[in-house]
Protein backbone atom coordinates (compact mmCIF):
# COMPACT_ATOMS: atom_id res chain seq x y z
CA UNK A 1 0.00 0.00 0.00
CA UNK A 2 1.37 3.36 -1.01
CA UNK A 3 1.22 6.27 1.38
CA UNK A 4 0.79 9.94 0.54
CA UNK A 5 0.84 12.96 2.83
CA UNK A 6 -0.62 16.12 1.30
CA UNK A 7 -0.16 19.47 3.11
CA UNK A 8 -0.53 17.71 6.45
CA UNK A 9 -0.36 19.74 9.65
CA UNK A 10 -0.85 18.70 13.24
CA UNK A 11 -1.17 20.58 16.54
CA UNK A 12 -1.22 18.85 19.92
CA UNK A 13 -4.16 19.88 22.13
CA UNK A 14 -5.43 22.25 19.47
CA UNK A 15 -7.79 24.92 20.77
CA UNK A 16 -6.45 24.94 24.35
CA UNK A 17 -3.88 27.19 26.06
CA UNK A 18 -1.51 24.19 25.78
CA UNK A 19 -1.66 23.95 21.98
CA UNK A 20 1.73 23.01 20.51
CA UNK A 21 2.18 22.77 16.76
CA UNK A 22 4.18 19.66 15.82
CA UNK A 23 3.86 19.33 12.06
CA UNK A 24 3.11 21.77 9.28
CA UNK A 25 2.81 21.43 5.52
CA UNK A 26 4.17 17.89 5.35
CA UNK A 27 4.23 16.47 1.83
CA UNK A 28 5.70 13.14 0.78
CA UNK A 29 4.99 9.94 -1.02
CA UNK A 30 6.06 6.47 0.08
CA UNK A 31 5.91 3.93 -2.77
CA UNK A 32 4.47 0.46 -2.25
CA UNK A 33 6.95 -2.20 -1.04
CA UNK A 34 9.69 0.33 -0.36
CA UNK A 35 12.01 0.49 2.63
CA UNK A 36 11.78 4.11 3.73
CA UNK A 37 13.99 5.60 6.40
CA UNK A 38 12.83 8.69 8.30
CA UNK A 39 15.62 10.74 9.81
CA UNK A 40 15.66 14.03 11.67
CA UNK A 41 16.83 15.73 14.82
CA UNK A 42 15.00 14.93 18.10
CA UNK A 43 11.69 16.78 18.19
CA UNK A 44 11.52 17.30 14.43
CA UNK A 45 8.13 15.57 14.17
CA UNK A 46 9.05 12.03 13.09
CA UNK A 47 7.14 10.22 15.81
CA UNK A 48 4.11 12.51 15.43
CA UNK A 49 4.07 11.69 11.72
CA UNK A 50 3.89 7.94 12.34
CA UNK A 51 1.12 8.43 14.91
CA UNK A 52 -0.92 10.14 12.21
CA UNK A 53 -0.04 7.32 9.84
CA UNK A 54 -1.47 4.72 12.20
CA UNK A 55 -4.62 6.77 12.81
CA UNK A 56 -3.78 7.29 16.49
CA UNK A 57 -4.19 11.02 15.97
CA UNK A 58 -6.10 12.86 13.27
CA UNK A 59 -4.34 15.56 11.23
CA UNK A 60 -5.48 19.11 11.97
CA UNK A 61 -4.87 20.06 8.31
CA UNK A 62 -4.37 18.27 5.04
CA UNK A 63 -4.96 14.78 3.80
CA UNK A 64 -3.31 11.38 4.30
CA UNK A 65 -3.89 8.58 1.82
CA UNK A 66 -3.03 4.99 2.73
CA UNK A 67 -3.88 2.52 -0.02
CA UNK A 68 -7.50 3.37 -0.82
CA UNK A 69 -8.32 4.99 2.54
CA UNK A 70 -8.16 8.72 3.16
CA UNK A 71 -7.76 10.42 6.52
CA UNK A 72 -8.56 14.08 7.13
CA UNK A 73 -9.47 16.16 10.16
CA UNK A 74 -13.11 15.18 9.59
CA UNK A 75 -12.56 11.39 9.59
CA UNK A 76 -14.56 9.58 12.29
CA UNK A 77 -12.32 8.02 14.91
CA UNK A 78 -14.27 4.78 14.95
CA UNK A 79 -13.49 4.00 11.31
CA UNK A 80 -9.79 4.21 12.14
CA UNK A 81 -9.89 1.04 14.24
CA UNK A 82 -10.58 -1.04 11.14
CA UNK A 83 -7.94 0.74 9.12
CA UNK A 84 -5.15 -0.11 11.53
CA UNK A 85 -5.52 -3.75 10.59
CA UNK A 86 -3.06 -3.39 7.71
CA UNK A 87 -0.53 -1.39 9.66
CA UNK A 88 1.88 -2.91 12.14
CA UNK A 89 3.45 -0.41 14.44
CA UNK A 90 6.50 -1.05 16.60
CA UNK A 91 6.73 1.83 19.08
CA UNK A 92 9.79 3.11 20.87
CA UNK A 93 10.58 0.66 23.67
CA UNK A 94 7.77 -1.69 22.59
CA UNK A 95 8.43 -4.00 25.55
CA UNK A 96 6.13 -1.66 27.53
CA UNK A 97 3.15 -3.14 25.70
CA UNK A 98 3.57 -6.69 27.10
CA UNK A 99 0.84 -7.67 29.55
CA UNK A 100 -0.34 -11.27 29.06
CA UNK A 101 0.52 -14.20 31.28
CA UNK A 102 2.54 -16.08 28.70
CA UNK A 103 4.73 -15.04 25.78
CA UNK A 104 2.57 -16.93 23.29
CA UNK A 105 -0.68 -15.36 24.54
CA UNK A 106 0.83 -11.90 24.26
CA UNK A 107 1.90 -12.45 20.66
CA UNK A 108 -1.56 -13.85 19.84
CA UNK A 109 -3.30 -10.79 21.31
CA UNK A 110 -2.97 -8.50 18.27
CA UNK A 111 -3.97 -11.05 15.61
CA UNK A 112 -7.04 -12.10 17.61
CA UNK A 113 -8.14 -8.49 18.03
CA UNK A 114 -8.08 -8.17 14.26
CA UNK A 115 -10.34 -11.16 13.78
CA UNK A 116 -8.07 -14.22 13.48
CA UNK A 117 -9.40 -17.36 15.14
CA UNK A 118 -7.48 -18.81 18.07
CA UNK A 119 -5.93 -21.57 15.93
CA UNK A 120 -4.91 -19.13 13.17
CA UNK A 121 -3.49 -16.70 15.70
CA UNK A 122 -1.45 -19.46 17.31
CA UNK A 123 0.09 -20.42 13.97
CA UNK A 124 0.87 -16.78 13.14
CA UNK A 125 2.27 -16.22 16.64
CA UNK A 126 4.55 -19.24 16.51
CA UNK A 127 5.82 -18.24 13.07
CA UNK A 128 6.53 -14.71 14.32
CA UNK A 129 8.29 -15.95 17.45
CA UNK A 130 10.47 -18.28 15.37
CA UNK A 131 11.29 -15.34 13.12
CA UNK A 132 12.57 -13.26 16.03
CA UNK A 133 14.53 -16.28 17.25
CA UNK A 134 12.73 -16.86 20.52
CA UNK A 135 13.31 -20.46 21.69
CA UNK A 136 10.20 -22.65 21.89
CA UNK A 137 10.90 -23.28 25.57
CA UNK A 138 10.05 -19.62 26.29
CA UNK A 139 6.52 -19.71 24.81
CA UNK A 140 4.85 -20.57 28.10
CA UNK A 141 7.06 -18.30 30.22
CA UNK A 142 5.81 -14.98 31.61
CA UNK A 143 6.99 -12.10 29.42
CA UNK A 144 8.01 -10.25 32.58
CA UNK A 145 10.64 -12.89 33.39
CA UNK A 146 12.53 -12.33 30.13
CA UNK A 147 15.61 -10.19 29.61
CA UNK A 148 15.18 -6.71 28.13
CA UNK A 149 16.36 -7.80 24.69
CA UNK A 150 14.06 -10.81 24.65
CA UNK A 151 11.10 -8.69 25.77
CA UNK A 152 11.81 -6.38 22.84
CA UNK A 153 11.79 -9.32 20.43
CA UNK A 154 8.55 -10.74 21.84
CA UNK A 155 6.88 -7.32 21.50
CA UNK A 156 8.05 -7.09 17.89
CA UNK A 157 6.76 -10.63 17.24
CA UNK A 158 3.40 -9.43 18.58
CA UNK A 159 3.28 -6.86 15.78
CA UNK A 160 4.62 -9.16 13.05
CA UNK A 161 2.01 -11.83 13.95
CA UNK A 162 -0.73 -9.39 12.89
CA UNK A 163 0.57 -9.91 9.35
CA UNK A 164 0.44 -6.23 8.41
CA UNK A 165 1.17 -4.90 4.94
CA UNK A 166 2.87 -1.81 6.27
CA UNK A 167 5.40 -2.11 9.08
CA UNK A 168 6.29 1.06 10.97
CA UNK A 169 9.37 0.91 13.19
CA UNK A 170 10.01 3.78 15.61
CA UNK A 171 13.64 3.46 16.67
CA UNK A 172 13.36 -0.30 17.14
CA UNK A 173 17.02 -0.76 18.05
CA UNK A 174 17.28 1.92 20.76
CA UNK A 175 18.99 0.61 23.88
CA UNK A 176 20.15 -2.72 22.41
CA UNK A 177 23.76 -3.88 22.16
CA UNK A 178 25.43 -3.60 18.71
CA UNK A 179 25.02 -7.31 17.89
CA UNK A 180 21.34 -7.19 18.87
CA UNK A 181 20.83 -4.08 16.74
CA UNK A 182 22.41 -5.67 13.66
CA UNK A 183 20.37 -8.89 14.15
CA UNK A 184 17.14 -6.98 14.44
CA UNK A 185 17.80 -4.85 11.36
CA UNK A 186 18.72 -7.92 9.30
CA UNK A 187 15.46 -9.50 10.48
CA UNK A 188 13.41 -6.51 9.31
CA UNK A 189 15.19 -6.48 5.94
CA UNK A 190 14.49 -10.18 5.41
CA UNK A 191 10.90 -9.83 6.49
CA UNK A 192 10.39 -7.00 4.03
CA UNK A 193 11.67 -9.12 1.13
CA UNK A 194 9.85 -12.29 2.19
CA UNK A 195 6.44 -10.76 2.82
CA UNK A 196 6.79 -7.89 0.37
CA UNK A 197 6.08 -5.29 3.05
CA UNK A 198 6.25 -1.53 2.98
CA UNK A 199 8.64 -0.66 5.81
CA UNK A 200 8.99 2.75 7.42
CA UNK A 201 11.93 3.05 9.77
CA UNK A 202 12.59 5.96 12.10
CA UNK A 203 16.20 5.91 13.18
CA UNK A 204 19.18 7.93 14.30
CA UNK A 205 21.65 5.35 13.00
CA UNK A 206 22.78 6.37 9.55
CA UNK A 207 24.62 3.07 9.06
CA UNK A 208 21.27 1.27 8.88
CA UNK A 209 19.86 3.91 6.55
CA UNK A 210 22.80 3.45 4.16
CA UNK A 211 22.61 -0.31 4.38
CA UNK A 212 18.88 -1.03 4.05
CA UNK A 213 16.81 1.95 2.93
CA UNK A 214 15.91 2.72 -0.65
CA UNK A 215 14.08 5.94 0.15
CA UNK A 216 14.83 8.59 2.77
CA UNK A 217 12.70 11.39 4.30
CA UNK A 218 14.52 14.12 6.20
CA UNK A 219 12.48 15.92 8.87
CA UNK A 220 13.44 19.27 10.32
CA UNK A 221 11.39 21.53 12.62
CA UNK A 222 8.07 19.82 11.89
CA UNK A 223 8.29 19.43 8.14
CA UNK A 224 9.90 17.26 5.46
CA UNK A 225 12.85 19.19 4.04
CA UNK A 226 14.33 16.62 1.68
CA UNK A 227 13.46 13.28 0.11
CA UNK A 228 15.57 10.99 -2.02
CA UNK A 229 17.66 7.84 -2.15
CA UNK A 230 20.33 7.35 0.54
CA UNK A 231 23.02 8.16 -2.04
CA UNK A 232 21.34 11.50 -2.82
CA UNK A 233 20.81 12.38 0.82
CA UNK A 234 24.28 11.44 2.01
CA UNK A 235 25.96 13.22 -0.92
CA UNK A 236 25.74 16.53 0.96
CA UNK A 237 27.19 15.86 4.39
CA UNK A 238 27.59 19.58 5.21
CA UNK A 239 23.87 20.17 4.75
CA UNK A 240 23.05 17.16 6.94
CA UNK A 241 25.31 18.42 9.69
CA UNK A 242 23.46 21.73 9.60
CA UNK A 243 20.30 19.74 10.38
CA UNK A 244 22.19 18.10 13.26
CA UNK A 245 22.35 14.80 11.36
CA UNK A 246 25.26 12.75 10.12
CA UNK A 247 26.35 10.45 7.31
CA UNK A 248 27.29 6.77 7.80
CA UNK A 249 30.88 6.20 8.96
CA UNK A 250 31.71 4.44 5.69
CA UNK A 251 30.49 7.42 3.66
CA UNK A 252 32.46 9.78 5.88
CA UNK A 253 35.64 7.74 5.41
CA UNK A 254 35.06 7.57 1.68
CA UNK A 255 34.60 11.36 1.60
CA UNK A 256 37.94 11.85 3.39
CA UNK A 257 39.71 9.59 0.90
CA UNK A 258 38.03 11.39 -1.97
CA UNK A 259 39.24 14.71 -0.58
CA UNK A 260 42.76 13.26 -0.65
CA UNK A 261 42.34 12.65 -4.36
CA UNK A 262 41.20 9.02 -4.58
CA UNK A 263 38.48 8.43 -7.23
CA UNK A 264 35.75 7.03 -4.91
CA UNK A 265 31.98 7.67 -5.08
CA UNK A 266 30.52 8.01 -1.58
CA UNK A 267 29.99 4.38 -0.52
CA UNK A 268 26.94 3.83 1.71
CA UNK A 269 28.20 0.91 3.78
CA UNK A 270 31.42 -0.86 4.68
CA UNK A 271 31.11 -3.68 2.09
CA UNK A 272 30.60 -1.22 -0.72
CA UNK A 273 33.56 0.88 0.41
CA UNK A 274 35.80 -2.20 0.71
CA UNK A 275 34.81 -3.26 -2.81
CA UNK A 276 35.60 0.15 -4.25
CA UNK A 277 39.00 0.30 -2.57
CA UNK A 278 39.86 -3.24 -3.63
CA UNK A 279 38.80 -2.29 -7.17
CA UNK A 280 41.19 0.68 -7.06
CA UNK A 281 44.24 -1.30 -6.02
CA UNK A 282 43.28 -4.10 -8.43
CA UNK A 283 42.99 -7.01 -5.99
CA UNK A 284 40.40 -9.83 -6.09
CA UNK A 285 36.84 -8.62 -5.44
CA UNK A 286 35.45 -8.89 -1.94
CA UNK A 287 33.01 -11.75 -1.42
Amino acid sequence: MAITFKNVGFTYQAGTPFATPALYDVNFNIPDHSFTAVIGHTGSGKSTMVQLLDGLELPTDGEITIGSATITAATKRKTLNGMRHDIGMVFQFPEAQLFEQTVLADVMFGPMNYGMSKAEAEIAAKAALALVQMPESSYEASPFDLSGGQMRRVAIAGVIAMEPEILILDEPTAGLDPAGQADLMALFANLQKERDLTVILITHQMEFVGQYADNVLVFDAGSVVKTGTPAEIFADSDWLRQKQLDVPAATQFSDYLEAKGLPLHGALDLDQLADEIVGLIGGPTHE
Binding site: N81, F91, A96
Partner: peptide
Protein backbone atom coordinates in the same frame (compact mmCIF):
# COMPACT_ATOMS: atom_id res chain seq x y z
CA UNK B 1 2.49 10.19 29.37
CA UNK B 2 3.26 6.54 29.87
CA UNK B 3 -0.42 5.62 29.95
CA UNK B 4 -0.87 7.53 26.69
CA UNK B 5 1.97 5.70 24.95
CA UNK B 6 0.89 2.26 26.19
CA UNK B 7 -2.65 3.09 25.10
CA UNK B 8 -1.37 3.95 21.64
CA UNK B 9 0.61 0.72 21.45
CA UNK B 10 -2.44 -1.35 22.40
CA UNK B 11 -4.70 0.57 20.02
CA UNK B 12 -2.20 -0.25 17.29
CA UNK B 13 -2.66 -3.89 18.30
CA UNK B 14 -6.39 -3.62 17.77
CA UNK B 15 -7.75 -2.69 21.21
CA UNK B 16 -10.79 -0.43 20.89
CA UNK B 17 -11.00 1.61 24.10
CA UNK B 18 -14.38 3.15 24.96
CA UNK B 19 -16.36 0.88 22.66
Amino acid sequence: DEAQSIMNAQRARGVAFNE
